[in-house]
Design a binder for these strands. Sequence first.
DNA 1: TGTACATCAGTGAACGCGCGTTCACTGATGTAC
DNA 2: TGTACATCAGTGAACGCGCGTTCACTGATGTAC
Lengths: 228, 228
Amino acid sequence: MRIHIGGAMKRLKLSGEERRGQIVRAALAIVAEQGAGSLSIAAVAHRVGLAPSALYRHYPDKDAMIADLLRRVGEGIRANIERAVAEAPEDPLAALGALLQRHVQFVVENRGFPLLLFSDLVTQHPERRRTLLENLDRFRGGVADILREGRRQGLVRPDVNPEAGALAFLGLFIPAGLYWHLAGGRFDITGHARRAWALYLAGIRAPEPSRTSRRAPLRARRRKETVS
Amino acid sequence: MRIHIGGAMKRLKLSGEERRGQIVRAALAIVAEQGAGSLSIAAVAHRVGLAPSALYRHYPDKDAMIADLLRRVGEGIRANIERAVAEAPEDPLAALGALLQRHVQFVVENRGFPLLLFSDLVTQHPERRRTLLENLDRFRGGVADILREGRRQGLVRPDVNPEAGALAFLGLFIPAGLYWHLAGGRFDITGHARRAWALYLAGIRAPEPSRTSRRAPLRARRRKETVS
DNA sequence: TGTACATCAGTGAACGCGCGTTCACTGATGTAC
DNA sequence: TGTACATCAGTGAACGCGCGTTCACTGATGTAC
């Protein structure tokens, strides 16, 4: 049954790692297709082509399997934000736009992930909820840092609160993702992300790039007072 | 056991209606406190103080109970949006701001509702998913109408797409609601809604209220071309 | 290169548990005369 | 106002089902000599 590819030295351990990857991918696909409530040991095992009891050779219990799944997916998201932060000094607004695009792409490819986040498997699990909150904060913090850099470069209006702006950034894809999910994929999520991004940009961008002292920033400051 | 309040003519039917109200409220509280996965007939019955089998005197099955719950909560949300649309002609931006505030308040008071929307109970149920999508469209459509009215009155920039702007409006509370939920209520959701609203307003508002021909709209139009 | 042993992924039967739901029955409440 | 009957909410025992998990066992693969 086993297919030999490379050297045979670490075949054994590698096989276990391969299986875990397979299991986690199957689990995410089940969540995407049938919802988090259908994520059972039996369903995952069946999809991978194993007996349910076989999964216990790779994880001590169901919880550990889910933890591994969340860890792996979380790494992908973290990589996106770190890349954006690294790109920010050169062109903060472009880095932010690219982050939005990459993140939307990631969610489209890992459709099960957001469903999992909203499921009892996460929300009713204090430790995981805390981890998720930390990751969300890291994402938000990264976006806020980019906004600060943009402000420093005079590309973002000085009256834009980086923290509020970062949370508003999440608002660019979360509702669209919700729509996309409810509509069963029949929703142009990338197209919407582009339009929402234009609106967001209009909201945060300084009137004239790289020139800081003009009349418009004053107008914006006046506006802020009216609202708060 | 029964408490007589008014006339005794329709006591019988009223009692059934009262029970259904009680059951639905208990169900929503369970979802809020323990997640949608904990919404069992036994749990609801226990909370109301009945034997599980008693619920079948009021609903043919669990599905019908959930449908009733969603119907009742949906009415509250619809009332909010209809009120905002009615208030729009007088002051569109104020109507939109009030809608945001009222909706956030509603979600805070019916914390179980959003959890239910993201649960398998809705997302894995094609008919309910369709109903939900219709309701969401109605909400979005209402906001878009208000934005159009704002544009007509010269309060909203003419280059703001009402449909995209309406979806962005959802982005003002959905991420905040997610945060608030993950943080277990330890998140200033109303405060955030206020700040996000200021940012949103800055993004859509025409530079000078009620004056349409100035230089800024042109600048905005140029901006749009750069982005799309 | 060949052999003996250890390791490890996979199996199938079995378990206890909570779930939604059914059903015959009870007793309180409402209605008709 | 009193009595006989109908209606209806509530009960407790029982069901079949899918779930996560355990366990003794198997057979393939890797390792040591």
